[in-house]
Computed example of a mutant assay.
Amino acid sequence: MDNSKHKSGFINIIGLPNVGKSTLLNAFMGEKMAIVSPKPQTTRQRLFGILNAEDFQMIFSDSPGFVLNPSYKLHEDMNMIVQTAFKDADIIILVNDGYNTLSEHEDLIKALEKLPVPKVVVINKIDQLKAERIESVKEEFTKAMPESKIFEVSALNKKGITPLIEHLIEHLPLHPAYYPKDEISDRPIRYFVSEMVREKIFLNYKKEIPYSTEVVTEDYKDEENIARITVMIYVERNSQKAIILGKHGAAIKNVGIQARKDIEEFIGKQVYLELTVKVRNNWRNDINFLKKSGYR
């Protein structure tokens, strides 16, 4: 087609933790790319999901939730990733789930005011909100961000997604595709493997355990009929390692079974998955480790 009529741009999704940003990305893409859990701060790094059509390419950016009071250097790095999302955006989506107050969004709204790009406010989880609350949130954000278009969606149920996508396409800038049309993400397969394992940790463990773990795919051997994968799970203390392993290794075995199923579905072949747990003291404040893990 004529590239002069092709649209392409970066649509960056921001918001506070646990408002459904990753679920919204998955709804846009029509498949699960970003991990999700009921716990806040599940997303730690930036992920591009690339939605292609003949006449457009939409590059959705899922970022960590903005941490209001960072407790670790990890949180500071996550907030830096959010700041990066402001810099390269062609369109910004601010996601709110109706549970957070307008004042909690104050820093994000101030940053958005400075950006000369189209802005969209998404009120997510409308299936869980009363009509009065939805109207109240709309009124608050209409006053705070009068230049923004507001959409009501349920990302989990894919309700309201089609008109939102149509609006985004309308406001995409004219530009050739940034990525080859057969690509759906900027991340390698190892990243998705690590994230699938980390998701199962978030879903299977309580309290501080999910937040104290980092997951790294150490080895990935793609053979004809099977992928052999070695994954390292880092924790901060020996007591956390014992919890991850569980009695006679039952807990980590369960994580492996669940993660292997998702990985096999994702790559389309049989997987041999080996999980190992290692203690890395205070890794969330270890600048070198954070840099090696891709946070800096």
Rank of each mutant, 00 (worst) to 15 (best):
D262M: 11
G249Q: 08
I229N: 05
I257R: 12
F202A: 07
E183W: 15
K207G: 04
I252M: 10
N225E: 13
G160K: 04
P163F: 07
R198V: 03
L164G: 10
A177S: 14
D186I: 08
E183T: 14
E223D: 11
Q258H: 12
I134R: 07
G160W: 01
E208H: 01
K221V: 14
A242G: 07
I189M: 15
D219A: 10
K130P: 09
K138H: 12
I233N: 07
S154M: 09
D186Y: 09
A250I: 02
V216R: 09
F141D: 05
R187L: 11
R237W: 01
S239F: 09
P210V: 06
E139I: 01
K221E: 14
I169R: 10
P173S: 04
H175W: 11
E224M: 12
K241R: 15
E140A: 10
S148I: 01
K241N: 05
P163Q: 05
K206H: 12
Q258N: 13
E132M: 08
N157I: 05
K207C: 05
H175G: 04
K181L: 15
K138C: 11
E166H: 11
G160D: 04
I165T: 08
E214W: 14
S136F: 12
D182V: 09
I244H: 05
A144S: 07
K158P: 03
R260Q: 03
I226N: 05
L129W: 02
F141A: 00
K221W: 02
G246C: 05
D222P: 06
Y234S: 01
P180N: 08
A155F: 08
A250G: 08
K200G: 01
V137L: 11
F141R: 01
S239C: 02
G256S: 10
S136R: 12
T230P: 07
E132N: 12
I201P: 09
E236N: 03
R237M: 06
K206N: 11
E183I: 13
M196L: 15
M196A: 11
V255S: 01
D222M: 05
I161N: 04
K158G: 00
D182S: 12
N254I: 08
P188K: 12
L203C: 00
T217K: 05
D262R: 10
H175T: 07
K200R: 14
R190F: 01
N238I: 08
M145W: 02
D186N: 13
F151D: 02
D222H: 07
Q128W: 10
V193L: 02
F192Q: 05
I201M: 09
A259W: 01
E195M: 02
I209P: 00
K143H: 03
